[in-house]
Amino acid sequence: KYSDMIVAAIQAEKNRAGSSRQSIQKYIKSHYKVGENADSQIKLSIKRLVTTGVLKQTKGVGASGSFRLA
């Protein structure tokens, strides 16, 4: 599940300011076997996790910027 992968990526990075979408994508692609549409799936999952309150956006708008666990 992409949401689990995103949470794992943010936990692994341990950046106080949060993790960027690009760094999350890079982590997921190197640690998991994902399909061609992974980028758009990650983007959608990040937006969903922010609206449900699992992630907090520290910089930027939408799916860009930095995110950390709430």
Rank of each mutant, 00 (worst) to 15 (best):
K59P: 08
D4I: 09
N37T: 05
A9P: 00
R68T: 13
V7E: 02
I28F: 00
I24K: 01
V7Y: 05
H31T: 05
E36P: 14
I6S: 02
S19M: 11
A9D: 00
I6T: 01
K33N: 12
A8E: 10
S19G: 03
T51F: 09
T52H: 08
A70W: 06
K1A: 10
S20V: 03
V50N: 01
V61I: 11
I28N: 01
S3E: 15
K1Q: 10
R16D: 10
Y32T: 04
S19D: 01
E36A: 14
K33F: 08
S3L: 10
F67A: 04
T58N: 08
V50L: 12
G35H: 06
L49G: 00
E36V: 12
Q22M: 09
R48C: 15
S66K: 14
K1Y: 11
Q41P: 01
Y32Q: 00
A17D: 11
Q57S: 07
R16M: 11
V34S: 03
A70F: 06
T52M: 14
K26I: 10
A38M: 06
G35I: 04
K43A: 14
R16C: 15
Q25S: 13
Q41E: 13
G18E: 04
A63P: 08
E13D: 11
V7S: 02
G53P: 01
G53R: 02
S40H: 13
S19I: 12
Y27R: 01
K47L: 13
K14V: 05
I10T: 01
Q22R: 09
K33Q: 11
Q11E: 08
S40C: 10
E36M: 10
G65Y: 15
V61K: 14
I42D: 01
S20M: 03
G60K: 07
A12M: 05
Y2C: 15
L55H: 02
V34W: 03
M5I: 02
K1G: 08
V61F: 12
H31I: 05
G65D: 14
T51G: 08
L69E: 04
S30V: 08
L49M: 11
E13A: 09
V7G: 00
G35P: 09
K26Q: 12
K33W: 06
K59F: 08
A38G: 04
R68I: 15
K33A: 11
F67S: 04
G65P: 15
N37H: 08
L69T: 04
S30N: 09
I10N: 00
R68V: 14
A9H: 02
K43G: 10
S19K: 04
K43Q: 11
I42P: 02
V7C: 11
I46V: 03
G62N: 08
N15A: 08
A38C: 09
I10Q: 00
R21C: 15
G18K: 02
A9G: 02
Y2A: 01
I24D: 01
T58C: 15
A38K: 03
T52I: 14
L44T: 09
N37P: 02
T52Q: 13
K56H: 12
I28C: 04
A70T: 07
Q41M: 14
S20R: 02
K33M: 11
S20C: 04
T51N: 11
S3G: 09
L49A: 02
E13S: 12
K14G: 14
T58F: 09
Q41K: 15
A9Y: 04
V54H: 05
N37A: 06
Q22G: 07
G65C: 15
L55R: 02
G60Q: 07
K29T: 07
I24Q: 00
V34M: 05
G62Y: 07
K43V: 12
R68S: 11
S66A: 10
M5R: 01
G62R: 06
G53T: 01
G60S: 07
V34D: 02
Y27W: 10
Q41G: 05
D39H: 05
Q25V: 15
S3P: 15
A63F: 09
S30C: 14
S20H: 03
Q22P: 05
A8R: 07
G18F: 03
K29N: 05
G53A: 02
S40Q: 12
S19Y: 02
Y27G: 01
K26M: 09
V34N: 03
S40M: 14
R48T: 08
G18P: 03
I6N: 00
I28A: 00
R48N: 10
I46W: 03
D4Y: 13
E36C: 11
M5K: 02
Y32S: 02
A17P: 03
Q22L: 10
V54L: 05
S19P: 04
G18N: 03
A63M: 12
G53K: 06
D39Q: 06
R21P: 08
L69P: 04
A38E: 05
A63S: 12
N37I: 06
G65H: 12
Q11I: 12
K47C: 14
N15R: 08
N37R: 07
S45E: 15
G62E: 05
K14D: 11
V7I: 15
D4A: 11
T51C: 14
G65W: 14
E36F: 09
S20A: 03
Y27E: 01
D4T: 08
V34R: 01
A63R: 12
S66E: 08
G18A: 04
L69V: 08
G35L: 15
Y32K: 01
R68N: 07
T58E: 08
D4S: 08
E13V: 07
K26N: 12
D4Q: 10
M5H: 02
K26F: 08
Q41L: 14
A70P: 04
K1P: 09
T58D: 09
S40N: 11
L69S: 03
S23D: 10
F67V: 06
S45N: 13
V7F: 06
R48S: 07
E13Y: 09
I28K: 00
Q11C: 15
Y27N: 01
S30R: 08
G62W: 07
S45K: 05
G65Q: 12
S45H: 14
R16W: 11
R68A: 12
K56L: 14
G60N: 07
I6V: 09
Q41F: 10
A63T: 12
